[in-house]
Design a protein around this nucleic acid. Sequence first.
RNA 1: UGGCCUGUAGUUCAAUUGGCAGAACGUCUGACUCUGGUUCAGAAGGUUCCAGGUUCGAUUCCUGGCAGGCCAGCCA
Length: 566
Amino acid sequence: MSDSEKRTDFVREIIKRDIETNRYGGKVITRFPPEPNGYLHIGHAKAICLNFGIAQEFPNARCHLRFDDTNPCKEEQEYVDAIIEDIRWLGFDWGEHLYFASDYFEKMYEYAIQLIKAGKAYVCDLSPEEIREYRGTLTEPGKESPYRNRSVEENLELFERMRAGEFPDGAKTLRAKIDMSSPNLNMRDPVMYRILHAKHHRAGDKWCIYPMYDWAHGLEDSIEGITHSICTLEFENHRPLYDWFLDQLGVHHPQQIEFARLNLTYTVMSKRKLAELVERKYVSGWDDPRMPTISGLRRRGYTPRAIRNFCKRIGVNKYNSTVDIALLEHCIREDLNKRAQRVMGVLNPLCIVIENYPQDKVEYLDAINNPEDPSAGTRKVPFSRVIYIERDDFMEEPPKKFFRLAPGREVRLRYAYFITCTDVIKDSDGNIVELRCTYDPATRGGDAPDGRKVKATLHWVSAEHAITAEIRLYEHLFTKEDPNDVEEGRDWTDNINLDSIKMINDCKLEPSLANSKVGENYQFERVGYFCIDKDSTQERLIFNRTVTLKDTWAKIAKRNNTNKNK
RNA sequence: UGGCCUGUAGUUCAAUUGGCAGAACGUCUGACUCUGGUUCAGAAGGUUCCAGGUUCGAUUCCUGGCAGGCCAGCCA
């Protein structure tokens, strides 16, 4: 599926129908309304692609970016900045339509007065505990507040004094007068305003009353002329209230549509849990490459195109499901295969001396930059008598189906020569420290004039020319597909994979990598996709492994291993 | 012993609105290959949650079950 291909879903079907019936004058205006209290994650990317994607697909459509900043206690400018950066990076644009709920506070206040005047809202003196008691339970109706029938004048005066700061936090609330016996708890006189003497990251000290989500959100949508207000499933129960407020006010009334949030195997997606991973130092920060955050994926080497494509493939639905993380990995491989420059890098070096190759000779061999993209051209790679290969590419006693180097066996060094292993050198503990090989000068470039074949082609790096780098290998952050699957008395943090990061220090890379920049994607041939981490310095390059290449041998080896252990 | 929502290959989604249940990912097999990558070809995989009903015909409509999700913040 290419980036430009469309895919329909129940949300788009609703919008199509509304356009056909001219429900909103043919207009389509969506919005992405993050609360700036954390970083965006791949689940948000699903919502972003949905809302901004719809805006791109339909005529007369646009998508607003609106910060739903109605709770000063949790929100910070740092998050606003990070969210803006992440959405831009994902490739979406809101034009001049950047909004903040806090800019609507005055307007919301006026609407509240309108509701009070209509006898549909009242100031309540019940404490939080009392409100809870009065609310009733899922199966029993609630009781009406003793303050429910205050006069309009008294409510108006009290509400004004709430705003003026005459009461302490929690002393009073403004509540909608709906139905304390509604089977939908949201309709049991929900709180519209609470008193909070807190400094807001944008409004400062201007307000000491703040609107609750249910009251604020519909108004934000209405004020901006949103036509389709797309949110996640847990707000389904809130839709009657969303509708009630807008109906009472008689204002523009968008359609709220709910869809299922994204879950991914081997990771967690709740903001609370991600924040906990950061706070308790299980990860290095919100942008740790193991995090499912947009910034974490970016640092890991994921591309916007891969993430967008992933969101397209998973679809949109109304039931909770968990997407196999293998699909995300497939999407990044698919994109990087087409675009990433190929290089040679040895993660775990094993030294080879090619005994019949001249001491001081250096040859510069042609290597293809990207077989998927001829326009990427070629480069020169230095070859000499002492090289490194991957330790995993040699076995002294090769099992069946192991095609790579072994004593007496001939393999090809990519773009270079055929070599044959003649000797294995070990230290006193029996560890292999070096290999001796001979090369066939007639196979220069990697082709044998006599047409003989080898079963394997290995990547390699000339020892004399190699640059040394640190490479960070990442595994899933959790050991279980569902991190929340825990026994009694344990919790999700018990499922954290303590080996999810492995740092390797003396990796040997071809010299062309010396000039690479942060974020650039490479394919280390036969190994995986890597990118330069921001922790890199002039002296020391650090690479993140984005994802491995598909590895048939690893699969066979794993199978052999499990069979052995049976 | 409340209300709302949802049940289709292992997973995520389709099925032109009542007309032969398909795709992608994953898995497995084979071909090709100077990446055990890519690409290509193929295979396995289904009681469409269950039971009734309407209909020539039901994944689709109706009824009743069952299972899962959400809701008792002055969070969003």
